[in-house]
Design a protein around this nucleic acid. Structure first.
Length: 258
DNA sequence: ATGCCGTGGAAACCACGA
């Protein structure tokens, strides 16, 4: 089973690129972030014609997450992260599919630091970690994937010194990610490539993609049952070079059947 | 060091992203 995550940065503006990549890579399950579209403007029909069923949680202008599946077997488990009824951002959706639990997340950016947005990020992270702990306790196969907006280590950013006080690299946020993984999760891409420099995002400006000035911020965390089934994975970085593309590239993993 | 690019929505600019 191939599972992918892709921050599309506007699902409607990105539709030709998204469909082209789906046809090319044929993932079984796809988590999308930054739909930037209200619920009623999700391109369900086009994606259905491309071979994918979908559940989604949209929002006008910002955020928005979706899970796609080639089979009509998506069972939605939740569409909000528990812990704060006043948080109306659409940043989390979770489903049972192909015998596993898939959580699709778009963790807040948190800039500028310091400030309320950074505090919101830390609070969201805290709620997410609490939810992740509960999922682990259920002892079922779980993958939590999406845009975490965190570079976990210095290896994951092209110029670490420049990012020290950025909300994506502040110590508090890296510690939060480390503690989350410490619950018992496996960072799948890092597990597959322990010593490589791997990026999933390149800024639109300053010629970042051509200079390979990137960040690794899109991650797969696997519960122990799934970590044992990890076969391969990678970044479809060539997609970042397409016309009208997102600033993120799709990331994918492949799991053994059992 | 920086929003220099890009998207969406409203309004001919602004918020937001990382």
């Amino acid at each position: 089973m191939k599972i992918a995550t892709y921050n599309v940065n506007g699902v409607n503006g990105r539709l030709p690129v998204l469909v082209r990549w789906l046809q090319e890579s044929s993932p079984d399950v796809v988590c999308l972030q930054e739909l930037k579209a209200p619920v009623e403007k999700f391109p369900e029909k086009t994606l259905r014609e491309a071979g994918y069923h979908a559940i989604w949680h949209g929002q006008k202008s910002w955020n928005g997450v979706a899970i796609l599946s080639r089979q009509d077997n998506l069972h939605e488990l939740r569409r909000v992260l528990p812990g704060d009824p006043e948080d109306l951002h659409s940043r989390y959706i979770e489903a049972a599919v192909n015998g596993i639990v898939v959580g699709c997340l778009y963790l807040p950016n948190g800039n500028p630091y310091p400030g309320p947005k950074f505090e919101y990020k830390l609070n969201w992270f805290k709620r997410f970690s609490a939810h992740a702990r509960k999922l682990l306790a259920q002892d079922v196969p779980v993958v939590l994937c999406g845009d975490y907006n965190v570079m976990p280590t210095e290896r994951d950013v092209y110029k670490p010194d420049r990012w020290i006080n950025d909300a994506l690299f502040r110590k508090e946020v890296r510690d939060a990610f480390k503690n989350l993984v410490g619950q018992g999760w496996t960072d799948a891409i890092r597990k597959l490539y322990p010593d490589d420099t791997i990026y999933t995002f390149w800024d639109y400006f300053r010629n970042a993609y051509a200079r390979d000035a990137g960040l690794r911020i899109d991650h797969f965390l696997l519960s122990p049952q799934l970590a044992r089934r990890l076969r391969s994975g990678g970044v479809d970085r060539h997609v970042r070079g397409w016309e009208k593309t997102s600033d993120h590239a799709p990331v994918w993993i492949e799991l053994k059947d059992k």
